[in-house]
Amino acid sequence: MSEKKTPVRPESGADIAKPRSDTAAVEAFVRQARAMAVRGEGAGRLILALDATMSRQPTWDLACEIQASMFDAVGRAGALNVQLVYYRGFGECAASRFVADTEALKRLMTRIDCRGGQTQIGKVLSHALKESGRGKVNALVFIGDAMEEDVDLLAEKAGELGLKNIPVFLFQEGTNPVATNAFREIARLSRGAWFRFDRSSADTLAKLLSSVAVFATGGLPALEKRGRPEDRLMIEHLSGRR
């Protein structure tokens, strides 16, 4: 991943200041550690990855508005920690810390603007594999419209994610056939699911994201228990991968 990242969790070893003797420095460190800590240990961990290249600005704005559906779906039944990953520009690919509420995630997303560049899906998949070494990752969500990389390399990483039980849920905007074939293969190999949407189907995307969140916190039993139409659709897709 690129070095251009927002702060990560304290246990990663990053952004830890050298010890100082003055009280003010200690208090500042404690405040920072509390702000960065993830609430709800043992909760579902979901990585939300988005293509932030220039063509994606309208969909980025849409994602900012509907991401709350993931947290709302979990509600009191569990807890969800979400990490934002995005790529844009010339080789820039960055990851946020994990956050446990919708406002924190929205604040992270609204600080980012889209910039022209090539896709970096391989970096996203590699990051998910690396993150799984720090703690269980229950699902990876990717929203994009293009694929400009070696599909065989992506397939290899997707297979590794499948072996680690990290399904990739891919939401494709538009009908680019190269992206369609690649996204379907990534979903198949990771034992995830692929869906198509457009900018007029924000409600459908929000509902499907809510299903992914429920799955990330409780697996298939949680989807079966909630039993909404979007949950049944997700179960159908996931069952076909097993």
Rank of each mutant, 00 (worst) to 15 (best):
D113A: 13
L129E: 05
E27A: 13
A146E: 14
N81Q: 08
E27R: 14
L209A: 10
L80P: 09
V85T: 13
G122A: 05
G13V: 04
E11F: 15
L105N: 10
A25D: 13
E236I: 00
K164D: 05
G91D: 06
L129V: 06
A24W: 05
R88D: 12
E185K: 10
V26C: 07
F183A: 10
V38C: 11
V26G: 09
A187I: 01
L208H: 06
A222K: 08
V212H: 07
E3G: 08
G240S: 07
A24Y: 12
V214S: 12
A187K: 04
S21A: 15
E41L: 10
F215P: 00
E65R: 12
L46E: 14
A128H: 03
V151G: 01
R34Y: 10
D15Q: 08
R31S: 15
K164Q: 08
R34K: 15
I235S: 00
D198L: 07
R97V: 00
L209N: 08
G162V: 01
L163M: 00
L84W: 14
G42N: 14
K130V: 01
L205N: 12
Q67A: 02
D61T: 15
S2M: 03
M147W: 05
S211F: 07
K164H: 04
G13R: 09
E92G: 03
I235V: 12
V85D: 15
V26K: 15
T59E: 11
W60C: 11
V141W: 04
A216N: 06
Y87N: 02
A77K: 11
T59H: 11
F183Q: 04
A33E: 15
F98G: 02
G91A: 04
P167G: 01
E3C: 08
G240Q: 06
L209D: 13
G240D: 04
V8C: 03
G174A: 10
T180F: 04
G42A: 14
E41Y: 03
R76F: 05
A139N: 05
Q57G: 08
I143L: 14
Q83T: 07
F195P: 02
K5G: 02
E224W: 03
A33G: 14
S96V: 06
P58K: 08
S55P: 10
D150H: 11
E65G: 02
I121L: 13
S211P: 06
A77N: 11
I235K: 03
M36D: 13
E103P: 04
D101K: 03
L50C: 15
A73D: 04
I66P: 05
L80T: 09
